[in-house]
Design a protein around this nucleic acid. Sequence first.
DNA 1: ATTATAGTGAAATTTAATTTCAAAGCAAAA
DNA 2: TTTTGCTTTGAAATTAAATTTCACTATAAT
Lengths: 285, 285
Amino acid sequence: MSIHDNILIKIREMKDSLTPVEKMVADYVLQNLEEIPHLSIKNLAQLTKTSDASVLRFCKTMGYSGYRSFIVSISASLGSMEEPKDSYTDIQPGDDLSVIISNTSRNNIKSIEDTLSVIDKNAVDRAVQVLRQSNRIVFFGIGASGLVGVDAEQKFSRINKMCHTYTDRHSQLTAATLLDKGDVAVFISNSGATSEILETLEIVKKTGATIIAITKYNKSELADKANIVLNISTPEVTIRSGAMGSRIAMLTVIDILFAGVASAEYKNVKKYLTKTHNIIASKNR
Amino acid sequence: MSIHDNILIKIREMKDSLTPVEKMVADYVLQNLEEIPHLSIKNLAQLTKTSDASVLRFCKTMGYSGYRSFIVSISASLGSMEEPKDSYTDIQPGDDLSVIISNTSRNNIKSIEDTLSVIDKNAVDRAVQVLRQSNRIVFFGIGASGLVGVDAEQKFSRINKMCHTYTDRHSQLTAATLLDKGDVAVFISNSGATSEILETLEIVKKTGATIIAITKYNKSELADKANIVLNISTPEVTIRSGAMGSRIAMLTVIDILFAGVASAEYKNVKKYLTKTHNIIASKNR
DNA sequence: ATTATAGTGAAATTTAATTTCAAAGCAAAA
DNA sequence: TTTTGCTTTGAAATTAAATTTCACTATAAT
């Protein structure tokens, strides 16, 4: 039994196959995880209104060799439970460079981690289906989000998907008008409230194209009107530091979509990827 | 004493103020961390060729109330030690979507973490100085790296730095010719061997502008010829999945440079950031 | 040389963990 | 309904572990 198995999960899983008294112990343990390691078996028996023999039986049933190794395992699980994640840390004036380096990196990492935890797997699934079946894909994004769109275009082009990115109001409006039922419009906007994006959104709505939104986890007009919403989590420290985290999260969502499509259509996609990779490699000799 | 204090560190710190016998125990514990939680105090006394009383004294000296709570703390520390980080994982055809989601995210996270560990703080320091003192900054990158350059341009523009990005061979060559002593050229290239980039590099070399390279940790012509090299670490699974990780690492390096410059010049920079933020916000009402 | 003092382990004591066993509960069979 | 066999349970007995006490040793200071 590995040290990294979380005991909480294990207890919950086993709970159904426990005897009534064992279940009482299980419940108490789950409710009072933190204090368990400091209790003696007798203490725990009293607290659960059972007997020490029953507590020990519980430990054995859970697969431990005795009370001691049960305690050890609980402690390890407690230790591995993520410590209260430090929140995003804005860069302060005059910060030491090594602090800047580590904070910046950590913020970016956290942005990915948090996105992973808010993203709706089901929505990703639908998005991948829609992208696969689409005639063509257009990406809409302004500013930093526009860059994410360009990145997406580069990726999806490599597997021979018809796609294009529009990064300014004018071309977005034009492109939006020309969309059709079988098309997919991917809107990329952290706030979900960028005025240009909303303008374009209105027009796309009328065309019947499927709308995918990549936007922060929050109510927004964009999120409301999209057919599929892919949420990202982003640091709230963007004001001074210039929207650093959100691109990273957005790019990760793009990566996921791309990987989802590429993996599902691997047979076809493989030859494209090899070809596009080779041409670039040969040019770089 | 928090559960999240790492005991290894604590023992090492205290080691000097321990008695000889206690030190023997400390050494054994450090050498055999994993097995300690399963030993009784008598076992440990035998293994360290001391007595149970001494082992207990050791625990007390370390600040624990007894052997039991010492064990609990060791277990917690063991639990919190990061499990062996899995390496980059390529996406396989037909992978389950949730696997794709988590692998993609993890690869991106790992790319940042690894970059953090290979990056040379000193080089970053010099890069920040150079960027601050420069008349203007130009970014050179092709393809995905070009996007990173554009991102950098967006950022540095916001703090009123003269800068521009060139993403194709033609405009790069043109811009390179016009560089001067006080200028900085930032080359962004994962391989460090992109032919267009090397062409441009030759020209920049002659102008006397300072050359910063953002490139993977490896020998390369670019790394050789640059004045300052900022290394990134990138997954080696790029062939099929389309250079996913490296952008993220590159963007993080850009973030670091930007934060470094912005933090050092905070007084001036603050008003720019506020202004640029406000104008965008007001437009989005 | 003598006296503190800190460090140590053996033995004694206390406490905790484990095992054993008999009683209680309960369901299926007679 | 009663009997039988099985499971569950806690009290008591046993064993093991942790803690305390205390006397001995070595070393440094007087």
